[in-house]
Amino acid sequence: MLDYEKYLRYRTFPVPWCPGCGIGMIFKAVAMTFSKLEWEPNDIAVVSGIGCSGRLSTYFNTNSLHTTHGRALTFATGVKLSNPDKHVVVFSGDGDALAIGGNHFIHACRRNLNMKMVVINNNIYGMTGGQVSPTTPTGFISTTTPYGNTEPHFNTVELAKAAGATYVARETVNRPRQLLKVLEKAFKHTGFAVVEVISNCHINLGRRNKLKHPIPMLDWINQQTIPIAKAKDMSEDELELKYVVGEFVHRHRPDYFEVYENKVVKKAKGE
């Protein structure tokens, strides 16, 4: 048995993702990170929303909670509030985190509870058949943008930064070693940590955009990928539609409980 296998809930297998989907790789990377950090399965709660990424919670042999579309962070907030010393890890997709759950996302960044969020960004509503999402690249065809997406797309990292997240990183499924590195740092971080992982949906995004097999789609992601150091010398125009990867924010700010204990409880109890 590999050392991360105790985090897998084998009895719920097989997993539901299409062959070649990037989510499986993220799944394994997170399980390996749990293993590396030696977190006990009982001390972890995995919370997820709706969509392909939402199904992840079912397959972790930890405490797990599959919630409603966009709301994973709200439930996770409650789980964390009730058990401040446990690990709470949230999975959301791009539609989940940035569209229907956008409000929860920005406020979770602001609030800085010590939780970890993995945003799996495959740039499309995959499970429902390929409708445009807030991160679908401009010009791309989806079932609800049959003439091409005309809306600008969200930048998850910039949003998280602006909202106050204390750890923010982006990686892609093409860079497993780097992904493991940022996941480890994010999970060790005290405060709200966001890791966006760019993933491939060759079936419901690629298929309509000349990227219908996993390899061309992964290649396309690779072509769009720019390491953060290199991006520093590039203009905004050059970075349009690019996935800048690396660590963007890593800073300390007292987490929610530290503040609550020091500023609220003591006053309320007259200490």
């Binding site: 919630t67 709200t74 439930f75 907030t77 409650g78 789980v79 509030l81 406020h107």
Partner: peptide, 26 residues
């Protein structure tokens, strides 16, 4: 806070409902 409890004002009503369900499971 006087009884070792915790109050949180969430960002909206949906979030408030989600949070209390999560806390109850906890």
């Amino acid at each position: 806070p006087k009884v070792d409890g915790l109050f949180i004002q969430m960002e909206d009503e949906l979030a408030a409902m989600g949070a209390v369900i999560g806390a109850s499971l906890g």
